[in-house]
Amino acid sequence: MTQALGDTLLIAGRNLRRVPRIPELAIFAILQSIMFVLLFAFVFGGAIPLPDGGSYREFLMPGIFAQNIAFASVITAIGMTDDLNKGILDRFRSLPMARSAVIAGRTVSDLVYNAGILVVLMASGFVVDWRVHTGIGEFLAGVGLLLLFAFAMAWIGVWLGLNVPTVEVGQQVSFLVVFPITFLSNAFVPPQTLPPLLRTFAEWNPVSALTAATRQLWGNPNPFAAPGFPAEHPIELTIIWTAVLILIFAPLAIRKYQSISR
């Protein structure tokens, strides 16, 4: 057990050490989000009125955070596929190390990576006048929820990364999944503006739940379409989603990893 933990930290350390060696990945991820912030805050924002009033930029930033956390699964998948195809997994698998450590280490390193990205994004949010209006406790609770969700997304990324033949395919497939759940959500527009069927999807969508939960915790504008569980209990819904995703994808990822040897 301590061996598994030690090995997990070694692998996570190795993954993180790679981040500054391939700076393009992190820089593009950050630039892309900053572009989103600028685009929505200054270009589209004016055309999107909030039903109950309030600052669009304060509404926007929690959506940007959640979007980035969801997209982080792509980074995880890329890392996993790369290790698989470059034979690094074979090297690890021929060592007398804890087998669980390779994927556990990947989820841990990506959690740290996400936390770093979040710091940069929060700083850029601060520049466009996004503020937390509640206490430090609520602020940290919101960050905690974001990272919890990031952990669930990392397991999806691991599973996906082990199932695709190349990094490029992995990238395409994960965008196919991540785009709908981030854009058919309350992240950029109030759900009221969506047609009814999409509105229901957007209400229950895990990214919406996460966005609404952090808005609620931080006192940012949090309009919802209709009363109901997602509107009234976004924090609980986020935790349920996270648990469900981990319960589904962690075993799938582990099983896939073990079956590489078949």
Binding site: R14, R18, R21, I22, K86, G87, I88, D90, R91
Partner: peptide, 9 residues
């Protein structure tokens, strides 16, 4: 058959 080392380390 192919060098299994980490290119970025």
């Amino acid at each position: 058959q192919y060098a299994a080392v980490d290119e970025n380390l």
